[in-house]
């Protein structure tokens, strides 16, 4: 279908600009991240998390989301960053990601705090810089430069379901 009505300035780039749109910005330490708003179900304060034995360290446990039990991942640990005690600003972002066999599943991710909703156009998003050979950048959608600050756009489906994020961790260092 051709764009008959659109007079939007960015129409020309539509084939490649699937990365534009709204992002929820949050931070871990000094690093700013963004995830697509469509993946976000809700944001809640940190509540009692029930620890589950024999799970990876980044799995903090499970919480009760209105009667449903969902796992909670600490994104700091997942990214190999230093763990810090939770504060008033720490929160859990509930996201809906793709699971096995085309199912979707909800998970909570613990972040230091959420800041704002960004509206990114194709012009704002850049490809991930080459971190050097051998470093894969799956898990990253790209980078956004806004007001002189760089925000890392995450492919949250991949971040949460991949077993090995070593290369991403390297990239973040």
């Amino acid at each position: 279908m051709t764009a008959t009505v659109s007079d939007n300035k960015a129409t020309a780039g539509q084939a490649t600009d699937h990365r534009s749109g709204k992002y929820l910005a949050f931070h871990l330490g000094n690093e700013e991240f963004g995830i697509q708003v469509m993946k976000v179900r809700e944001i809640m304060g940190v509540q009692d998390i029930t620890a589950v034995p024999h799970t990876p360290h980044h799995t903090k446990g499970v919480i009760n989301l209105r009667g449903k039990v969902i796992p909670v991942i600490d994104l700091r640990v997942k990214f190999g960053l230093e763990e810090v005690p939770y504060t008033q600003r720490t929160c859990i972002i509930v996201v809906q990601v793709k699971g096995d066999h085309a199912s979707t599943l909800q998970m909570g991710i613990v972040v230091d705090g959420v800041s704002e909703v960004l509206n990114l156009t194709a012009a704002d998003v850049e490809d991930t810089p080459d971190f050097g050979t051998g470093v894969e950048t799956r898990g990253l959608l790209g980078m956004a430069k806004l007001k002189g600050k760089v925000k890392i756009l995450l492919d949250i489906d991949h971040v949460l379901t991949a077993h090995d994020l070593t290369s991403l961790q390297e990239a973040l260092r």
Partner: peptide, 20 residues
């Protein structure tokens, strides 16, 4: 065309995230 739509849908979605 499609972009236009996505932008509108996103802007509705953004309101959900803003909560209160």
């Amino acid at each position: 065309m499609r972009r236009e739509w996505e932008a509108r849908i996103d802007s509705v979605a953004a309101q959900f995230v803003l909560g209160e």
